[in-house]
Amino acid sequence: MAKIRFPVLIALGLFIGALALSSALKDRHYLLLSLVLLCAALLPLFLRLERRKLEPRELVLLAVLAALAAVSRIPFAALPSVKPVSAIVILSAYVFGAEAGFLIGAVAALVSNLYFGQGPWTPWQMFAWGMVGLTAGWLRNTRWMRTRPGLLLFGFIWGFLFGWIMNIWHLIGLPDAFSWGLIATVYAASFYFDLAHALSNVVFLSILAGGWIKVLERFRKKYGLLR
């Protein structure tokens, strides 16, 4: 069983990919194709995680930070778009790097949706928050991110980018209504939500940044985590 597992999985993936492609071409039905492409986008980083040699301490650290991000979403459930998740993901990536940031964002989205409801939007949120972490990790050594206003600006921009990525998901479901008018309406309708997300990112980052970065740096140094 163990020997044929990977060939079987690859064959299954190709089969579903072919189904998705023919569904998109034949019936102009893009839901399956979009999900297949998203999973393909998420796969490489999860594969890297499987390949990498990780200490148990590092695995547990990733889980703790992802869980903190997921928990932080629950008290704000009543306020749409006000979630400290992005702030926590950015701060974790700032200290532990791009790959860790991606994993924390993606896993936090997956797990917190167990409480909020899973749906076709889950992979999109995993992707969006994963990208928040990935970019924060990439840019962490630039002079821009090293300054506090730069970090806050980064959070502000991602508040909008996050909403724009999630809007694509809404648009894909309505291929026949697809027009500049629909795009404008969807993006205009989400503007206030995106603005709320962006501002809440700035607020949470400004509250959390000093203390959390110090604590996380300390843990990283003391235990030699994710170097």
């Binding site: 499987e50 889980a63 994993l103």
Partner: peptide, 22 residues
């Protein structure tokens, strides 16, 4: 656990931590 041990473990630990942290 046998196909993707680390991803599965991280996801599961996160799942378990959520009620604990609350």
């Amino acid at each position: 656990a046998s196909t993707a041990p680390k991803s599965a473990l991280i996801t599961l630990m996160t799942l378990r931590f959520v009620p604990l942290f609350q």
